[in-house]
Structure formats: structure tokens, C-alpha cells
Design a protein around this nucleic acid. Sequence first.
RNA 1: GCGGGCGUGGCGGAAUUGGUAGACGCGCUGGCUUUAGGUGCCAGUGGAGCGAUCCGUGGGGGUUCGAGUCCCUCCGCCCGCACCA
Length: 868
Amino acid sequence: MNRYNFKEIEAKWQTAWEAAGCFRARDDEAPAGADGKAKPKYYVLEMFPYPSGRIHMGHVRNYTIGDVIARYKRAAGFSVLHPMGWDAFGLPAENAAMERGVPPAEWTSNNIAAMRAQLKMMGLSIDWDREIATCDPRYYKHQQRLFLEFLEHDLAYRRESWVNWDPVDQTVLANEQVIEGKGWRSGAPIERRKLSQWFFKITAFSQDLLDALESLDRWPERVRLMQQNWIGRSEGARVYFKIAGSNGTTSEPLEVFTTRPDTLYGASFCALSPHHPLAAALAAKDPALRDFVAECDRLGTSEEAIEKAEKQGYDTGLKVLHPLVGGLELPLYVANFILMDYGTGAIFGCPAHDQRDLDFARKYRLEVLPVVLPPDADPGTFAIGNEAYVGDGAIYNSDFMDGMSVPDAKKAVIARLEAQGDGSGTVQFRLRDWGISRQRYWGCPIPIVHCAACGPVPVPAEDLPIRLPEDIRFDKPGNPLHHHPTWKSTSCPKCGAAAERDTDTMDTFVDSSWYFARFCCPQLEDKPLDRALVDRWMPVDQYIGGIEHAILHLLYSRFFTRGLKRFGYISADEPFAGLFTQGMICHETYRDETGQWLYPGEVEKQADGGAVHRDSGRPVTVGRSVKMSKSKSNTVDPELIIETYGADTARWFMLSDSPPERDMEWTAGGIEGAWRFVQRLWRLIDEAAPGLPPADAPLPADLSAAACALRQASHKAVDGVTKDIEAFRFNRAVAQIYELSNTLTAFKAGDSGDRWAQREASEFLARLIAPMMPHLAEQMWHGLGHGDLLATRPWPVANAALLIEESVTIAVQVNGKLRATLDLPRDAEDSVACERALAEPAVQRLLNNGQAPRKVIVVKNRIVNVVV
RNA sequence: GCGGGCGUGGCGGAAUUGGUAGACGCGCUGGCUUUAGGUGCCAGUGGAGCGAUCCGUGGGGGUUCGAGUCCCUCCGCCCGCACCA
């Protein structure tokens, strides 16, 4: 039996595609299609990878999906751009430098070379001439230029903000480097520190970023929802509480933000963020408060940690005056759950109608006065237990608002506060400005010079790029750029005096916020982007990546695109017209008797479902399937898979079974099954080809019933697979291809007409698998006697006349339960269907000796339901 | 804590979007082929029952002639939370 030699064949077709330049994107006027019309453009982009050194299964899935779309669209007559690059700055390169002494630039470029080779093994239809890496000065030079433009347009500014500080390593930590309040390397309790940092003014576009979500109709609904919640527009009020002074005078009033001004009469305390200026002022004179604030700081900067922590407060001893209730004084606390970054950093607490406030009030024994009465409750007896009432109802206990609905009360109380000068209605966003300064080496340097006389001064555009120095050392804690003996010394571009460079680099999210546009003109030297080329390709028609980027990367890119538009680089309003978020790859986990994680390759499955260690034979515990990760040793190396089974097999398995948006499970059985199918398909064509009519033989005049049935099955497959690819239902496309292949395998050709239908089905099969298993498809195409590249062929079109069924099977139900099925001509009259259904013995039996049915429901071509 | 999602045979999943639940694949069972095999081919495969039938889409309740699909409620698991990328 012949075997499919994937190694030879995959390499052969990859070379052939490259030689023919099949995947080069054309910037020039789109070449005319066969019908004389210009080809429409189509930009397919997968999120570019971080060059960690080896591709992982997540990459294989991501790039397989993208490649199916790119190849399909190319065949469907589009002028396709499908580029690849490297998100090459970031922390892991610095960790490698610290742990192994490899310079980040060298580490990164080695990783890129290794990963490029791996991606090429996959046979992706990528235009490699457009490859970019964000750590390349030819890229970050333009990013520095863009930073200056953000500054010029007042979309970047400098202010102080909080960071996680490791007092032992003398360095700023990322949230993920803070583990239970301690530094990951030093183990020292972390502190919060204030640093002067650069910010992008994303909040300038809050409303627009929110409104435009509606136009993104090819984005997953859940991503739009998450972004909407992230931007978090809320209408509410600012309320001023005067502070009762010890000597009867009041200082500056306390400004709080609330979304529930209607509950103002239920207020029983006010609380400040530990970082509120007033808290800081009070702490200066109060050591106990200082300790409390320090305690809060140990939580770090992550919102999750702050909100999960037990609610704690510190009574400042100060009282604030209720703006509407004369003489009512409320205690003022500093509380660990108040975020300085949201609203005004201060709240009033209404325990009856907010769970956090209620928890707080119970803990500190504060009053709980309900002011919203649930619809069916009795005002005399209604009381709050351990659950706040957050629903709608009638306002009571609230003076002039009594009896109003919640929305009416909001309006009324805002009007009253405004009239009194004690507050105002306002719109608040949860979205905060984007802090981009990082105290790290391996990132894009911020092109700013700090001058004692002139302050922060932008580096003139002609002096860019500000290059990263390569002679750096990681032996001291802190930022190597900062320690570098000479790098930061320079002169002020404004006054010429000795000055220092900003030693911070940009957040790597900046790098990925415009790379998609740079792919339109990757080699352009004098400016970041060429308007004409950007407009030729942008927006990205289909963007594909992990759901974990649903908020930050996508939101920052949307913000950047608005900036780019303002600076005149782009016409599009949004960067990504279509978005697809794929699920993760999971695998079973294995542990030995000592609890040590084992890699799948170290484990041997047994017939009884158990597992043992391959070498030692010791028993292994099989754990549930979770996301592949090094920490659980449940990863499978794509390169090993491709070397064992070939790229097509890996790609096919990626697309089989699981819907692409859902998590998929990697199994040894699954990849074996895919491998067998590759072999089967190839054998099917290899064995049938010699007996088939020539490639261009005309359709014979009369075909046997079997040939007609085969044609119908093939055309249905073409139609179905096309629809499934368009809708990202690759698992269903795969299932349909299996069905066609099963039909074709079972087909026994009798006459020459049969063999014609057999050739048609075989060719369709090759063409339908082409986006998914491109090498095998080329080989099949070649085996069927074609001399051209399938990669350059248009997509097959089904003959609509062959898709229509002549008869349909109808379900016959009695009281909704299936009792029989009927074969009827398509579109048979309802009366006919009804008559035939009632004649069914199973129906007669349930009608008890010819009783008349109470009702009969007929759905054409589908169902007859007899109600007894 | 807040926000988003998912839940169907032994397993991954399909279901024309309210109309025959389990397509297709994996696994399993039986048989055949092969020098042999973890290859290939054929048949079977949701559970219970000899059977007519009955039960079955995380649990409970509801709407409907009809619910995996819609509504309410409970449970379990997963993702994001602003310095990981």
C-alpha cells in the first residue's frame, strides 16, 4: 500500500507557492478578475505572536483559522493581505537576561528565527515580505514619532500615578508579579509608590469608543458587551458634603460621586479612598491612619485584589454635613474598597441599597435606613437584613421625594442639589487614561528629555529613533536604562543645557496598537504610515485572536486608530471591521505519586482507562482537562506533531470537532484520527485517478441514478462547506467533508458517466479541503491530472439545481411525541400530509378506535403533530 | 468582589434557530483482510425493557400542540479586571 509522504510533499508545495509568489499582497491597482472587474481587497490578520521561542498549540489554532480564511478569500476572488510580525518587546526577554545572561535583543532575534521556521512549516499563506518586529528601530522609530504627535494633539500628558514597588529588588512590579501582596522574586511585601508617568488620553474618546461599538456588527456580542462595561458610562451626581470643623468653620467641601443620588436620605456615612488627598492630609497628623493606609497599600494596584479584600475602614473622627438634612452629621471614614481612580475617590454610603455599603455599615454598626420601598412591601415593617435592596420601588423616608419612582427621584434630587449649589448631575466613565510608562529596558524608549530649566521636552522628530543601548547590564536591581553610565546624558533640545533622557519605555500595548496599519507599508522609512496604502487595506476585514484580549488590546487599538485619524494617517474609523475570538487549547493533566506534574509524552494510557509512567511503570493520576500551560506540564509541542504527522494533519485536527470560538481538547486519539483521514483521502484519489476521465471531459448526456445521487451529494457539500467557512463553523465544514468522502468511498462506478461524477466529486473534495489542508489538496489536484497550482484556482460553485430534494421525510407526532415518519414529495399539500399522518397505524392506535383528533398542526416539509 | 461566558452519549461535538435529539469524529463491541501490527474493510453502539414502549440535553419550575433552543430559579466550571502578552 502506498503511503502519503507528507515530509516530501509539504516541502514541495511550500516551495512551489513561494516560487509562484502566490501569497504576495498587491498594493498596486487590484488585478482584474476573470469577469473583468477589479478584485475587492480583504485584510486577514491574526494577532501577532510574542516571540517566546517556540510556537504553542494556541498559535497553531490561531494561524490555522486565519489561514483558512485567507486561502478561502483568495480563492473567492479577493485581493488578500495576510501578513505576519512579532510583538517583540516585553518582560520575558528581560527575565531571560537576568536568569541566563543573554542580551534581550539577541534572545529575541533568536526566538524570532526559530518561530518563523516553525510557522513556515505550517504552510501558512502569509506574505513574508511584510514581516515586522516591534523591537526593530525601523519600527519603534515611527512609534516614537507617533508619541510626539499624541503629545502635540494634547492626547498625551504626564502626571503622577501609583505603581507596585518591590523594596528589596528596588523595582516596579507588574500585577502578575505580585503574589499575595509579595514580590515574586524577592518575596518582600510590596508597597505602592507614586511615580511621574506618561498617559494617553483615551478618556477623550470615552463616549465615541462606546457609541461606535454599535457599528462593529461583525464583532462577537460578548466582546462588545465587555468593552461597554469596561468603558462603564454611568449617569449620576456629584454631591458636596461640607466638613464640620472643630471650631465650627468648614474647610473645602468633600466631593463625592454617586450613581444613586435618589438614596441620599439613606446616607449614613462618607468614605474616602486611602489615596484621596484629604486622607493623605489627615494621615500626616495621624500615625494610626498612616498605618491603615500602609496596610491598604499592601494590597497592590490590582482592582481584583482591592475588591476581594475584606471591607475595612478607619474612622477619621471628622463629620460631614448632610446637604439636605439640616443638622445631620455623618462620620467620615477612610475605606480600603474605595478606588481613587473612579469618580472622585470618595463616596457616600447608603447601606440599605448597596451591598458593599451594607457590609461596611454592619461591621461598624452604622445606621441602615431604607429609602426605596419594594413594590409589595409595607412601609411600616420593611427592614433590611443582610441583603441590600437594589431593585426599583417607591422612594420614602425622603422628604420631598417621597412617593417618586427611582428615576424621577434622581432627577428631583439633582435639581434640588443644583439649586442649592451642593451638587450637580454628571456623567461618569469607568474608563481611565492609559498609563504607558514602564520602568524597564526592553521596550520602546519614550522620546523625551528632562531639562532642569525647561521641564520635559520632546525630542525633535529628525533625531529619532532614540535607540536602546546594547551595552546594558542586568546585575543591579532596577531599570538598566537608568543605570547605564552614559545613555541618559544628553542636552536639552530647547535650551541646549545638560539634560537627561526619560529612562522609561512604553507599555508593549502601544506596540500592538498600530502594527496592523504598519503592515500596509512595512518598509516605509520617512514616516510611520502612508495614507494611500493604509486606506487601500484598512480596516482589517477579519481579525482573529484570543478572547483574553477582548478588552485591553482591542480598546487601545481602537483608541490609537482615532488618534491616527486625527493626525491624518488613516480614513477608517475603526481598526477591525470583523473580529473572531478563538477558544483555548486544553489537555488532560497527569501527576505521579509524588504529585509531580508529568508531560503527556511521559505517560502511557492503559486499556482500562488508567495510566502509568512510560519509563518507570509507576501509576499516574489522570486529572481533568485544563488550558495547556507549562506550569501543569500538559503542553504538546506543535513542532513534534508536525514532524510526526505533518502540518495538514495538525491543521485538520485543529479545525475538527470543536467550534473555533470554544475551548478545544487536544487528544492523542484526535490527532491520530486526523492522520488516518489524511491517508484515506490521499489513497482514495491515488487509487481512483487512473480510471477517471480526463480533467476537461464534458458532462455526459445521461447519468445513472447513482451518478446523479453522487453529484447531488458533491454539490451539497460544496454549498454547505462554503456556508460553514463563511460562518466560521469549521467543525461542521469538516463533518461535511467527511460525509462527502464517505459517500465517494462507497461509490462503485459502473459506466463512464459514473466515472465522470466520481471525478467531479474527487475534484470538489480536493478544492474544499484546500484552505484547511493545502498541501494534501495540491497533491490531490496534481494526482487528478492538473498542471496548475490549486492555490491559484477560484473557489468551486455549487449548481443550485442539484441542491433541491424531490422528497422529504416528515415527522409524525402525537401530542408532541414522535410516532412515525412519512416520505412525501417536497411541498406536498398540508391536507395530504395530514391524511397520510392520520392513516399511520401508530397514530390510529393512539386515537382509540377512530376518535377524531382535537387538533392537527402541519408544518410544511417538516412535521405533522396530532393533538388527541 | 465586579463584568463576560459555558454546561447535550464513555469523549469532542451536531441539531435547518421553537419542529424527527445525538450529524461527523474519537472510543468501544463483534466479524473479515494482512506474515504481523496500534493498518485497512464490514456491522453495531444514549440508557432501561423479550416486547409494545418508557426515560433522556447540569438540577428544579414555567410558557407552548411541540422546548437542547424561550422565561424564572438554583448548581458547577472557565475567562477578564487596567504594569503578562
